[in-house]
Nucleic acid binder design. Structure first.
Lengths: 213, 213
DNA sequence: GGAGTTTTTGTAATGACCTAA
DNA sequence: ATTAGGTCATTACAAAAACTC
């Protein structure tokens, strides 16, 4: 985008200079007429049909500006506008049409690139988030582990003193299976290339807590 | 993509023969030529002055095949190969060079597109992972909460029975407070490319456990 | 360190094909 | 059915950037 602008400017400068030195080499000259093109007919040899055509490289900066302006308003080009522009800029309507076609193509490419880099940024951010969450999970699990140990310790103490508690060891069963289960599936979805991190199985949770409640 | 194939085939059909010989001369011989351009020395043909140069539109299918073949082997084109190819295919070395230039450009675009969609897939996967982790964190926090409650309960019991334990209520301090705060910032900053994950600071863990040990 | 190349980037133009009025 | 206008893919050129010797 910036490049674009720079180029534009560069061109202008450049052309300004060059046109002084070599007048009318770069700005279109070519009396655009000799184009007896019958819009896609069997024009095979048509090439040979006269056609010592033109080459006229490069439109002038002014012409490009006008075109760019119009393109900004609307990427499509109705015949109306096309003809108007053509006569305003002293170009063949055909050229205007071509310019718009090419401009649309360029625009498409640029857009793709923009979307790419934006997606990349997003992705990077999400990856960072993911890492953060992973370590958070690890941390929480540790804490949970410690808590379990502590509970066990306390439970033993209580047991020893109050002499009751029918069950204190059968706590590790399935806790919240329906939950992650679904997500796990989604994650596997399509041969999830990267980041197909399993690292679960810890779905047992802490229902043992319920035993005490 | 598919269109591509079709076009290729079509081309083979009718372009095979007449690809070379028409004297396409629509490269201007525009009035002004004066091209005191440095660096354009090998103006073979008559490009510089007269310009009855023939530029053939469309290469034959065979020519394209050969070129494509060579491109597959190596995207770069040394003069060596260029000249060889040119004479093999009956083309101007210049054309071969141009063809390679354009081919490289096309290849680059295609590659960009591929990378885009691949990145997109990756991103989707990571997002799913992130969701999973988020719910896991939620779950773990809940469990932790429950565990703490349970510990508190047991602690009280032990306290009541064994008549000791000076502190039993100051266990609910920050479980993971410093954590999210900092990361929120990180997530927004896009500079911190990959993995600027601190993922520490949580070393405080569950020191409260020690109170009971 | 600059002349001479080659590669990349940006434009212009053409042909084939598709679609809708 | 014709045809104007659009998209795609190509061919080609020129200027700038990037190498090379």
């Amino acid at each position: 985008m910036n490049m674009n602008m720079n180029n534009q400017i560069d061109h202008e400068d450049h052309m300004a200079l060059l046109s002084q030195l070599y007048p009318d080499v770069y700005t279109q000259m070519v009396p655009q007429q000799a184009k007896p093109r019958r819009r896609r007919k069997k024009n095979k040899g048509g090439e040979g049909g006269g056609c010592a055509a033109l080459k006229k490289r490069k439109l002038s900066a002014e012409q490009v500006n006008q075109l760019e302006m119009n393109f900004g308003n609307e990427h499509k080009l109705e015949s109306e506008r096309k003809d108007r522009l053509a006569s305003e800029l002293g170009l063949d309507p055909r050229q205007v049409a071509v310019w718009f076609q090419n401009r649309r193509a360029r625009w498409k490419n640029k857009k793709l690139e923009e979307e790419y880099s934006s997606l990349k940024k997003m992705h990077e951010n999400v990856v960072v988030e993911k890492c953060r969450l992973e370590s958070e999970v690890l941390q929480l699990k540790e804490q949970l582990m410690d808590a379990e140990k502590e509970i066990q310790r306390l439970a033993e103490r209580v047991e020893g003193v109050s002499s009751n508690s029918p069950s204190s060891s059968l706590s590790m069963e399935a806790v919240e299976p329906p939950f992650l289960g679904e997500f796990g599936v989604v994650a596997d979805g399509f041969d999830n290339m990267f980041y197909a991190v399993p690292e679960n199985n810890y779905i047992h949770g802490m229902e043992w807590v319920n035993l005490y409640l």
